[in-house]
Design a protein around this nucleic acid. Structure first.
Length: 864
RNA sequence: GCCUGGGUGGCGGAAUUGGUAGACGCAAGGGACUUAAAAUCCCUCGCUCCUUUGAGAGUGUGCGGGUUCGAUUCCCGCCCCAGGCACCA
C-alpha cells in the first residue's frame, strides 16, 4: 500500500458523504442525553477570518467528542444578518444591503462547509428575514405592554454636515469619519428596554453560574456596579432649592469643599441664569457637549470646569462651598452631582489643585499625618476621622454607617443603593435592522402595531446616502400609515432595533427554527434543548451581548415562553486573534495584501503600521483562511488553529508553524499506510496476554494518551496539549521496532495504538481520520464510534523519577519503583554518590519529602 | 482614565493543587539517504562561564521587593500588551 495523503480529495469526499447521509441532522430524542453546543453566530461581513475558524473549530471538536460520548448533540449555525456594514456597503458601492448580506452569507456558508464543521444546516437562520424578526417585534409589543419597552430622550453622535446619526465607531478623534466635521451631541426620543427591572436577578445569578469564567462574572458584576451609599442634600446658599448628590463616601462629608455638577446637567444653566457668567458657562457647556465620548475617556483628556457663581452649604458644617460645572462628571450616574472631597479623592484633588480650591483633611492616616500643603495625591485609604465634629476619632469605615444614620435622622439625606447599569437603548436611526412595531398618532399617541399586522416588514426600495437622518423616515409608503385606533393618518416609528436584540434570543430560535406559530418558539422543543450546555465565543462579548441575552431570557421566561432562568450553562470565552493594522494616508486602512514592502499597492505611499488589534473588517487586519485550506486542507487548518494556543488566550496571528501540523498529519498517514497490510486482518489487542517490555511500554503510552486527551478536551478545552500528547504517541510508535509479519500479538498491540490515534484525532481532524478508519476495514462513520476508554492499570507507571534537591537546588535524580516507601526514598537520596559528597560534613537541618516527586535536603550553609 | 485579563528560549507554547522550568511544534545548525533537489529519517539547540568540556558551575519565567525548605505559580509596588467602556458586532 503506497497512497499519498491527499487532503483535498479526502475532505471533499467525506463532506459530501456527511451531507448525503445527513449525519448531523438532529431531532429531540427523550432517550438520549441532550447536549446543545453553540458558537456565537457571525456577522456576515463577507469572508470568514481566522478568528471565526478558531471559534468554530473549538466548538466542532467538542461537538464531535460529545457525539462519540453518546450525546444527542444540537449544533446549529446562522447569521447575525442585520447591522451597519451592510448599510455602509450600500452607501459606498450602491449595493442593496439585502443583496450584499445574502451574497456574503452564501460565500461564508461555503467556507464553513469547506472546513467540515458538523452543523445541522437544516436549522440555519438569518436574522434579517421577516420569519425571524416578526417574533422579536411580537416580544417588543409584549414588553411595551408591560412597560419594559419605553421611550425617553437621550443623546446620539450627530454629524451636522451629513445630518445623520453616527455610531461611536464612525467617530474618529471627535470627527465624522466620512466628512471630517466635528461631531456634536444631539437629543432624540429613543426606545429603551428596561433591563434595570431585572438588575437584582442579573446580579444575583452572577454567583450562580459556576460554568462561566470568573473574569466574565466579575466584569458583569462591575458593569452592573451596585454600590451602597447616601443621597445627601446640599441647600443652595442665598436661594431656595438644594443640590442632591450621591456618594459612597459619606464618611468624608466634613471634607467636602466644593460641589461638582455634570456640564450637560440641566441644573447648570438654571443656576447661572441671569448672572454675568451665563454666556461663558453656556460656551463651556456647548464645548463639553461637542467633546466626543470616546475622547472623554482617553488619556489626554483634561479635567476642566467652570465656576457657576453660586454656592451651596455643606449640610453638616454649614460652610459655604462653591459650585462648579465639570466635564468629567457623568450626568446619568447617580444624581449627576458630586460633593468634591479633594483631600480624599484623586479626581477632586487634581481639580482642586488646578483651580486653587481648598483641601481639608478629614481622615488621618495612622503612620504619618497628612499635610494639605505638601500632599501630592489624595489620601484614599482608611484612617481615623478628624475635623469631623462629633465623629472625630472614629474609624472611617465605622463612620460610613454612623454618618449615614446621622444624616437620615436629621432629614438631610438617606441611605440608598446606586447602580451603574443603565437601561438598554435599542433605537437606531438606520435602515438595515428590525423595524420597531409602533405607530405614532397625533390623536391617540403611541399606538402599538396590532399583533395580527406583524411582521412590520422592512421595505426593500430605500435610498441610502448616509445623509439626512433615518432612511426609513423618507420612505412614504412605509412611514405613512393609518392609525389602528382612530383611523386617522399617522406615522410609523422609523427607528430600527439594535442588532443585539436579534442575538439575544437566536439560541432559542435554533431549537425550532421554522416554527411559524406564535410566539415563534415551540415550547416542547425549547424545553428539550435549552439551556445551551456550552456557549463559545470571543471575550469581546463578555459584557454587552452576554448581559443582554441573559436579560432577554429572563424576560421571555416571565412571559411564559421559556422555562430557564439563564441561557448558557457553560461559557468558554476564546481570546482574540489579533493582527497589526496598516494604514495609508490616502486609502485609509489596508488589507494585508494591499501592502507590499511597506508601501500601499494603490498609490505607493508609505504604509503606517498601527496597533495590534483584534481582527475586524473595519480595521481590515483580517486573514482569510482560504489560502491555508487551499494549500494544506481543512484538517491542517483546524489542527493548526488549535495547536497554536489554548482557546482562552489571545493570539497574534502568524502562520509560522502550520507546516508542522501538515507534517504531523502526513506522518500519521504514512505510518498507518506502512502497517496497513500487516494489521488489516488483526484485531486490536484486548489485554489477554502478557507483553514484553517494548510492547508493554507502547501500550502504556497508548492508554496514558487516551487518559490525557479526554481530560484535556473535557476539563479544560486545552486542545494544544491534547494534540501534543497524540504527537508523542505517534513518535513512540515510530520508535517501535517493526514486528515480523507473523507476530500477530505484536501487530495487535500496534493495531490498538493505531486505532487509538485515529479515534483520539477524530474530533480534531475528522476527514483524514474517517479515511484511515475506512482503510482499516470499518464500514460505519467514525463520527458515531464510541470514544476509547483507558485501563488505569495499563496506564500506570511502574518506575518513577525522584528529584533530589540540596537547599532547593536540583542536584540529582534517582529512579525508584512507583510504590517505594518514603523512608527508603530518603535514604536512597542521602546515599546517592553525588549527594553524599555535597552534604558530607554539613549539618542536615531538615529533609522534605514530596511523595512521588522530590526530596529536598536542607543543610547548614558555610559561614552561617 | 475606569473595569477585566495577560507577559516563560530566536518563535508558538508546556509545566493541571507551591515541588525537575522549557513537553510538543516551528525556525536554525549538523548528519544519513539521493546524480541532484524535494520529501523522509537521525542528532544538537535558554543564556553565561571554565586551567575538571562535565552526569560541571552560575544564572534564568516583564521589572523591583516579600512569604516559603522550595515561587512561572501566593502577596505588595511598578512597566508593557490586549479586551470592554453602553451606536462595530
Amino acid at each position: 500500500m503506497n497512497m499519498k495523503y491527499n487532503p483535498r480529495e479526502i475532505e471533499e469526499k467525506w463532506q459530501e458523504r456527511w451531507e448525503e447521509e445527513q449525519i448531523f441532522k438532529v431531532t429531540e430524542n427523550p432517550h438520549k442525553k441532550k447536549y446543545y453546543l453553540l458558537e456565537m453566530f457571525p456577522y456576515p461581513s463577507g469572508k470568514i477570518h481566522i478568528g471565526h475558524v478558531r471559534n468554530y473549530t473549538i466548538g466542532d471538536v467538542v461537538v464531535r467528542y460529545k457525539r462519540m460520548r453518546g450525546y444527542n448533540v444540537l449544533h446549529p449555525m446562522g447569521w447575525d444578518a442585520f447591522g451597519m456594514p451592510a448599510e455602509n456597503a450600500a452607501i459606498e458601492h450602491g449595493i442593496h444591503p439585502a443583496r450584499w448580506t445574502y451574497e456574503n452569507i452564501a460565500s461564508m456558508r461555503k467556507q464553513l462547509k469547506r472546513m467540515g464543521f458538523s452543523y445541522d444546516w437544516d436549522r440555519e437562520i438569518s436574522t434579517c428575514e421577516p420569519e425571524y424578526y416578526r417574533w422579536e417585534q411580537l416580544f417588543f409589543l409584549w414588553m411595551y405592554g408591560k412597560g419594559l419597552a419605553y421611550k425617553k430622550s437621550s443623546t446620539v453622535n450627530w454629524c451636522p454636515r451629513c445630518r445623520t446619526v453616527l455610531a461611536n465607531e464612525q467617530v474618529e478623534a471627535g470627527l465624522c469619519w466620512r466628512c471630517g466635521t466635528g461631531v456634536e451631541e444631539q437629543y432624540l426620543d429613543q426606545w429603551f428596554f428596561r433591563i434595570t427591572a431585572y438588575i437584582e436577578e442579573l446580579l444575583d445569578y452572577c454567583d450562580r453560574l459556576p460554568g462561566w469564567p470568573e473574569k466574565v462574572l466579575t466584569m458583569q458584576r462591575n458593569w452592573i456596579g451596585k454600590s451602597y451609599g447616601c443621597e445627601i442634600s446640599f441647600p443652595l446658599a442665598g436661594a431656595t432649592g438644594e443640590i442632591k448628590v450621591f456618594t459612597t463616601r459619606q464618611d468624608t462629608i466634613y471634607g467636602a469643599t466644593f460641589m461638582l455638577v455634570a456640564a450637560e446637567h440641566p441644573l447648570v444653566m438654571k443656576l447661572v441664569k441671569g448672572k454675568p457668567r451665563e454666556n461663558e458657562v453656556r460656551e463651556f457647556v456647548e464645548k463639553v457637549k461637542k467633546q466626543d465620548r470616546v475622547l472623554m475617556t482617553s488619556e489626554y483628556y483634561e479635567k476642566e470646569g467652570i465656576f457657576l457663581d453660586t454656592y451651596c452649604l455643606n449640610p453638616l458644617t454649614n460652610k459655604k462651598i462653591p459650585i462648579y460645572a465639570a466635564n468629567f462628571i457623568l450626568a446619568d450616574y447617580g444624581t449627576g452631582c458630586v460633593m468634591a472631597v479633594p483631600a480624599h479623592d484623586q479626581r477632586d484633588f487634581e481639580f482642586a489643585r488646578k483651580y486653587s480650591l481648598p483641601l481639608k483633611v478629614v481622615i488621618q492616616r495612622l503612620d504619618k499625618p497628612l499635610n494639605t500643603g505638601t500632599m501630592t495625591d489624595a489620601y484614599v485609604d482608611e484612617g481615623i476621622l478628624i475635623n469631623s465634629g462629633p465623629f472625630d476619632g472614629m474609624e472611617n469605615m465605622k463612620a460610613l454607617e454612623a454618618i449615614a444614620e446621622y444624616l437620615e435622622s436629621r432629614g438631610l439625606g438617606k441611605k440608598t443603593v446606586q447602580y451603574r447599569l443603565r437601561d438598554w437603548g435599542i433605537s437606531r436611526q438606520r435602515y438595515w435592522g428590525a423595524p420597531i412595531p409602533i405607530i405614532i398618532c397625533k390623536v391617540c399617541g403611541t399606538v402599538p402595531v396590532p399583533e395580527f399586522d406583524l411582521p412590520v416588514v422592512l421595505p426593500h426600495d430605500v435610498a441610502l446616502t448616509g445623509e439626512g437622518g433615518s432612511p426609513l423616515a423618507g420612505h412614504r409608503q412605509f412611514a405613512e400609515v393609518i392609525c389602528p385606533c382612530c383611523g386617522a393618518p399617522a406615522a410609523r416609528e422609523t427607528d430600527t432595533m439594535d442588532t443585539f436584540v436579534e442575538s439575544s434570543w437566536y439560541f432559542d430560535r435554533f431549537c425550532s427554527p421554522h416554527h411559524a406559530f406564535e410566539p415563534g418558539l415551540d415550547k416542547k422543543k425549547t424545553d428539550y434543548w435549552m439551556p445551551v450546555d456550552q456557549y463559545i465565543g470571543g471575550i469581546e462579548h463578555a459584557i454587552l451581548h452576554l448581559l443582554y441575552a441573559r436579560f432577554y431570557t429572563k424576560m421571555l421566561r416571565d412571559f411564559g415562553v421559556l422555562s430557564v432562568d439563564e441561557p448558557f450553562t457553560n461559557l468558554l470565552t476564546q481570546g482574540m486573534v489579533c493582527k497589526e493594522t496598516m494604514r495609508c494616508s490616502e486609502h485609509g486602512y489596508l488589507f494585508p495584501d494591499e501592502a507590499k514592502d511597506g508601501k500601499c499597492c494603490h498609490c505607493q505611499r508609505e504604509v503606517t503600521i498601527g496597533k495590534t488589534e483584534k481582527m475586524s473588517k473595519s480595521l481590515k487586519n483580517v486573514v482569510d483562511p482560504d489560502y491555508l485550506i487551499g494549500e494544506y486542507g481543512a484538517d491542517t487548518t483546524r489542527m493548526f488553529c488549535l495547536f497554536a494556543a489554548p482557546p482562552e488566550k489571545d493570539l497574534e496571528w502568524s502562520d509560522q508553524g502550520v507546516e508542522g501540523s501538515f507534517r504531523f498529519l502526513n506522518r500519521t498517514w504514512r505510518i498507518v499506510m506502512d502497517y496497513l497490510d500487516d494489521i488489516r486482518g488483526v484485531a486490536p489487542f484486548n489485554g489477554g496476554e502478557a507483553l514484553e517490555d517494548n510492547l508493554k511500554n507502547l501500550r502504556r503510552k497508548t492508554h496514558q494518551t487516551i487518559r490525557k486527551v479526554a481530560a484535556d478536551i473535557e476539563e479544560r478545552f486545552h486542545f494544544n496539549t491534547a494534540i501534543s500528547a497524540v504527537m508523542e504517541l505517534v513518535n513512540t510508535l515510530y520508535q517501535v521496532e517493526r514486528p515480523e509479519r507473523e507476530d500477530l500479538k505484536a501487530l495487535s498491540v500496534i493495531r490498538e495504538t493505531i486505532e487509538t490515534i485515529i479515534m483520539l484525532l477524530a474530533p480534531i481532524v475528522p476527514h483524514i481520520t474517517e479515511e484511515l478508519w475506512m482503510l482499516l476495514g470499518y464500514k460505519t462513520s467514525l463520527t458515531d464510534v464510541p470514544w476509547p476508554t483507558y485501563d488505569s492499570t495499563v496506564a500506570s507507571e511502574e518506575e518513577i523519577t525522584i528529584v533530589i534537591q540540596v537547599n532547593g537546588k536540583v542536584r540529582g535524580r534517582i529512579t525508584v519503583p512507583a510504590d517505594e516507601d518514603a523512608e527508603n526514598v530518603k535514604s536512597l537520596a542521602v546515599s546517592n554518590e553525588k549527594i553524599s559528597r555535597l552534604i558530607a560534613g554539613k549539618k542536615v537541618l531538615r529533609e522534605v519529602y514530596v511523595p512521588k516527586k522530590l526530596v529536598n535536603i536542607v543543610i547548614q550553609e558555610q559561614g552561617k
